[in-house]
């Protein structure tokens, strides 16, 4: 068996379509995960005790079980409790919730890491609680948690591959199907590895560029 790139070139339109799904689900899950994760962290930090405890339990379960099993449970177990979703929405929901659990922990640590004195200074000049969150806590926290967020984004792009098992037509599903049909397993796997690695590199590069831009806001 020889390494045949022609197979890849011939199937380029299908591959690009798969790649589009991967990118779309990744970016959407990233946005939803950050939004939901922030809400969970804020509720745990500022909300009432029992709610915080319930959220903490949910986060622990989501972080303590493999994503593969979570997505299986959602897709195949969901119908038993009335959650009937197509592969793409199921994949997006599962990945977003999984990401939110990790992001909430990152943000929670971020809230705690903002020096108390910065909040006190804001109280002293009369900012309200909501203004302190919006003007002081969130911007300062963003600088602190940026490296971990980039790291999480990188993990997330690779987790999208798992969605192939519930038949989400993303890059891994499309390309490995192609490999089976054409008996080009090595080519397809190599191509997949290359695609994910390039995405991860691009993400890391974007993260570093952002960190450089924010570097002058660093803590004095």
């Amino acid at each position: 068996m020889s390494f045949d790139l022609a197979v890849v070139v011939a199937a380029l339109p299908a591959i690009l379509a798969g790649l589009q799904v991967t990118l779309g689900i990744w970016l959407a899950a990233l946005a939803l995960g950050i939004g939901l994760g922030f809400a969970v962290a804020a509720l745990r930090h500022f909300g009432p005790g029992p709610l915080g405890l319930a959220l903490r339990l949910a986060v622990e379960v989501l972080r303590g079980t493999p994503f593969l099993i979570q997505i299986f449970l959602l897709y195949f177990g969901g119908p038993f409790v009335g959650i009937r979703l197509d592969p793409v929405p199921a994949g997006l929901l599962g990945l977003s919730v999984y990401a939110a659990a990790y992001f909430s922990e990152i943000f929670r640590a971020g809230f705690v890491a903002v020096p108390r004195g910065h909040v006190e200074a804001a109280q002293c000049v009369g900012l309200s609680r909501a203004q302190i969150v919006r003007r002081i806590l969130v911007p300062e926290m963003t600088m602190l948690v940026l490296p971990q967020c980039v790291n999480m984004a990188v993990i997330l792009v690779k987790e999208t591959a798992i969605l192939s098992i519930i038949a989400v037509p993303e890059a891994t599903a499309v390309i490995s199907a192609l490999g089976s049909q054409q008996y080009a397993f090595v080519e397809s796997l190599f191509l997949l590895a290359l695609i994910y690695w390039l995405l991860v590199e691009a993400c890391g590069w974007a993260g570093r560029a952002l960190e450089r831009r924010l570097s002058k806001f660093r803590f004095a």
């Binding site: 910065h118 006190e120 200074a121 804001a122 002293c124 000049v125 900012l127 300062e140 004095a220």
Partner: peptide
Amino acid sequence: GMVFQQFNLWPHMTALGNVTEA
């Protein structure tokens, strides 16, 4: 008005931004 031992300026705002925030 209060002035702290650790200054407690907000690092994401300029000197003027810190003064004008409130």
